[in-house]
Design a protein around this nucleic acid. Structure first.
Lengths: 335, 335
DNA sequence: ACATGTCAAGAGAGCGCTCTCCGAAGATCA
DNA sequence: TGATCTTCGGAGAGCGCTCTCTTGACATGT
């Protein structure tokens, strides 16, 4: 039965009493077809339930009308519940829907996965590629760009390749957070940083260092990997190393949630003894004990903007190489 | 430049000094090609960096080597941070990777989105369709099945259509949870149920009702929609209606998290005054105050199994129409 | 009246691949 | 040794679509 009955352009043409070319014109929103004929074609299409065969179409147009979103499957951020992953997908999806294109999702965790992604994307099976949450220096984006395949990254590529990217203002957000701590009288401000091979980790730490330095305070740093477990461990380290700390900026809400718990277990009251500020403003932030003051980043908007840029690029247009979205300090009870 | 330089089968054939057909055989893992020739072809492929054009291939094979995963974008569960969405995707993705197929993700939120999904999937642009987290009675799965397109759902389709599905043992899990409450001396056990138009909501409520009835206890029900906000509201209702309750089974961890907070605000101690059990075992469950006792469901495994079933179906095989995965009660401090 | 211009619709050539024949070797048997 | 069989590789016909080229019909200018 396979393709049985699946009507082709030819069938529609016969039914409408016109040529294939004309049907094609109508289907693709032609302008130069007489109203009467156009309607006849539309009627035939409806009656036959005709749906264009995309494979055939892309064979000749060299377009696929689909774009790939590549995410590092093993990235803790991606599969932690900080909503980063769903948020990006949702944003991308919305924009693609508007452009009537498909989203091919690829998780590049294992080396085999990376290989597969490379093969697929370099094979021009998609019109463009979106890279989310890059780890370290991945050679693939640059390679694709070199092959002339449109690429947009989330976060400035670490290897300095001049690839277009969309990111949020990490430094500005952190700066506001730390300034808030300083403004409320905190002086011994520590940080729990993210991984040093991810842009978000690097930038947020840089923002912290800049701001405490500018205020003449000393930095106290512990490093995590954005997960709760690492946040708890880092908080314990910090308490051991700097028992006098009176505030901590945590580079992700997840780690902050764990830090809050660790502080409670250590008998420190938040925010009385120690003020805590997170980053992300995940939904859970409002439900921690106490509710978490945090830096909000517009995750979904990142996805949307990345997609817009990519589509523009794929359409042959030019774009600004970097797009930085604003962050916002959300005050709750923890600081 | 477009397709410039992109090598075709023809080019590989010329370089290897054989015919297109032979190259095709080698590329597709032929059996009847002499070792020597096969190697020559592989060398030519490597040298030219040849990647098969999938559009051309699927034009003739009538397969697309990609499957669609359809999720209702507006479903609260999908974009709440209960990890359902990422978990499913991850599971699906793993299985597809093993089968070397692509994942086309479609969010069917708006009516326009649903229309788009219908158009795309009925147009045979994918080899099969996975439906996650169905809301109410969606006619699309049945329609696709009728068209002969392989379909697998997550959760028993509500309209009773005999579509294959994969789900977890909601009733069993809830039953164990409620029995645990009863076993620890609770007698006035309420529930915060999920939405009545989703399988998970219905089944978990059914499990609750059955179990309390079997123990000769009366049911106290408030309804939420799996989100935190609704959980808080439901908990407040419950406290108002049944101020004497000593336990509550909550149909999702997110709602349970909110319920915990509401109870705290109302001055009830957990678990001393009121025991709380959730459902999902999201990562956050271990970090609530107090840590949440909950029913774990193997989300990722749902994704994997759905995919396996679908691939089997797409390969022309037959499958058991229903696959129910086990749930497990995870004891922490809230009950 | 004829030549020229304009615009709509048809003819036909592929896009790159798979796969069914078929034919050319070499192997086997009487 | 000749006939039959078995392997293995080539030729060629499409898969369904788009798009250029061309023709035909009609309007316009002189």
């Amino acid at each position: 039965m396979r393709t049985a009955g699946r009507p082709t352009l030819e069938a529609v043409a016969r039914r409408a009493g016109v040529s294939r070319a004309t049907v094609s014109r109508v289907v693709n929103g032609s302008t130069t077809v007489a109203e009467e004929i156009r309607e006849a074609v539309h009627r035939a299409v409806a009656e036959l339930g005709y749906v264009p065969n995309l494979a055939a179409r892309s064979l000749v147009t060299q377009r696929t009308d689909s774009i790939a979103l590549v995410m590092p499957e093993d990235a803790n951020r991606v599969f932690s519940d900080d909503q980063f992953f769903p948020g990006i997908i949702r944003g991308v999806s919305q924009e693609l829907e508007a452009a009537d294109k498909q989203l091919v999702l690829m998780l590049a965790g294992s080396p085999a996965g990376r290989e597969r992604v490379a093969r697929y994307t370099t094979g021009r099976h998609v019109d463009g590629v979106l890279f989310a949450s890059l780890h370290a220096a991945d050679p693939l984006p640059a390679l694709l760009a070199q092959l002339g395949i449109p690429v947009v990254c989330n976060g400035r590529p670490l290897d300095g390749a001049g690839l277009p990217y969309v990111d949020v203002d990490h430094v500005g957000g952190v700066s506001r957070a730390v300034d808030h701590l300083i403004g409320t009288g905190r002086r011994r401000i520590a940080t729990i940083a993210g991984p040093s091979d991810m842009v978000a980790g690097i930038e947020r730490l840089a923002g912290y260092r800049q701001t405490v330095a500018a205020a003449g305070l000393s930095a106290r740093v512990a490093v995590g990997d954005f997960t709760r477990e690492s946040g708890a461990a880092a908080m314990r380290d910090l308490l051991a190393q700097h028992p006098d700390l009176d505030a901590v900026f945590v580079a992700s809400d997840l780690m902050a949630q764990a830090a809050l718990r660790t502080l409670r277990e250590a008998g420190r009251r938040v925010p009385d003894d120690v003020a805590v500020i997170g980053f992300d403003d995940t939904e859970t932030a409002a439900y921690t004990e106490p509710p978490l003051t945090t830096v909000r980043q517009p995750i979904q908007e990142i996805g949307r903007q990345m997609t817009r840029q990519l589509l523009r690029l794929a359409a042959g247009g030019s774009i600004e190489p970097a797009l930085v979205l604003p962050t916002e300090l959300i005050l709750r009870d923890s600081a």
